[in-house]
């Protein structure tokens, strides 16, 4: 039963990815801008242009191009980047860990800010504390992440320079890493000096990404907590003599977390989308930064590769949310 459901999930995921690949493939070819024009100097002859076009297969129909590309993808070959002249797959894999680390670190910050604020707000219902949390949430939500980025640069980069403004790691450092998961590896190797440097670079972009999500988590979790706290089993726990805080943590939190969890999944995909601009802002060498270069250079294979990887991450997050939902809700487990 569970296995069958899992198979259906895998099938839906495959169909989603197929759909994304078709849409992206068509859109970037229909949109104005020509990769060949970016590669050749002005005044190149029509012959040269045609030759180059044929070299990259751009002289064929879109349908033909798609099937050539797709059969490559099925064999694990995502093509060659036009602007960087390297294998798309290895380019993407070299940048993906940086973006994943940044996003997960941001999610971590968002949970760390939003969760406790929600619990505090639910505990102090109807007081000035709750009103203050509402105001802070409103501000964090209504300001987009890139503006938070600029504000943070001003604050922690200029006025009180405690964090690094740009890059992923200080260039003078000697990196012993074998993978691209620098932060993760630095912890595993007990190189906490490097961890500190990496977090010093990652903190501001991650915080900029995290603030809107933290506000959403805090607001939504607070509302569901308040709702759950009117239920009979919570009243019963109060009668048993449990304090308001332990009532929230023991009885209410797990059930209130369910609707929030689904939303965190959706919002986390938005957060990853936000890395495209935030990475650019902080010159952070991740996939999003590479995506902007790829678009500027009309690097069709690279754009396709990056978008497909982003799409894969999104469907995986949705899968993870579904699985966690079942884990938290015993009623769904045997369904």
């Amino acid at each position: 039963m569970i296995f069958q459901r899992f198979l259906i999930r895998l099938l839906t995921m495959a169909i989603t990815l197929l759909g994304v690949s078709v849409v992206v493939f068509v859109i970037i070819r229909v949109a104005p801008g020509d990769p060949i024009a970016m590669m050749l100097p002005p005044g190149a002859s029509d012959d040269d242009i045609a030759r180059l076009r044929a070299l990259y297969g751009l002289d064929r129909s879109i349908v033909e191009q798609y099937f050539i590309w797709f059969s490559g993808v099925l064999q694990g070959n995502f093509g060659t980047s036009i602007s960087l002249r390297q294998d798309v797959m290895s380019l993407v894999l070299s940048r993906l860990p940086a973006t994943l680390e940044l996003s997960i670190f941001a999610l971590f910050i968002a949970l760390l800010i939003g969760g406790p604020l929600a619990i505090l707000g639910a505990r102090e219902q109807g007081t000035a504390v709750e009103a203050g949390i509402d105001v802070a949430n409103g501000a964090a939500l209504s300001i987009p992440d890139f503006l938070w980025g600029l504000a943070l640069i001003l604050l922690f980069g200029v006025l009180w320079p405690v964090f690094h403004i740009s890059g992923r790691v200080s260039p003078r450092l000697d990196l012993p890493f074998v993978t691209q998961f620098y932060l993760f590896e630095s912890i595993l190797r007990f190189r906490f000096d490097l961890t500190k440097d990496l977090i010093g670079h990652m903190f501001m972009p991650a915080l900029a990404l995290a603030l809107p999500l933290a506000a959403i988590i805090s607001q939504l979790l607070k509302i569901s907590l308040k709702e759950v706290m009117t239920l009979d089993y919570v009243t019963l726990a109060r009668v048993k003599g449990f304090s308001e805080t332990s009532v929230i943590l023991r009885e209410a939190l797990k059930n209130a977390a369910l609707p929030t969890l689904t939303l965190i999944g959706v919002q986390f995909t938005f957060l990853i989308g936000g890395t495209v601009i935030i990475e650019r802002l902080f010159s952070y060498e991740g996939l999003g930064n590479m995506a902007i270069d790829a678009v500027i250079n009309r690097d069709l294979p690279l754009i396709q590769g990056i978008v497909l990887v982003f799409a894969l991450i999104f469907v995986l997050i949705n899968l993870a949310v579904d699985m966690m939902y079942a884990l938290l809700n015993p009623r769904l487990r045997h369904g």
Partner: peptide, 30 residues
């Protein structure tokens, strides 16, 4: 005082138990 000296038998048994906790701990926690 209330926790030690009083108890409640609630109206609706369907909503008075926490759906995500096992019954045993809900009985022993007090």
């Amino acid at each position: 005082v209330i926790g030690a000296k009083a108890a409640l038998i609630p109206q609706d048994p369907l909503t008075a138990l926490n759906p995500s906790r096992r019954v045993g701990p809900q009985m022993t926690d007090r």
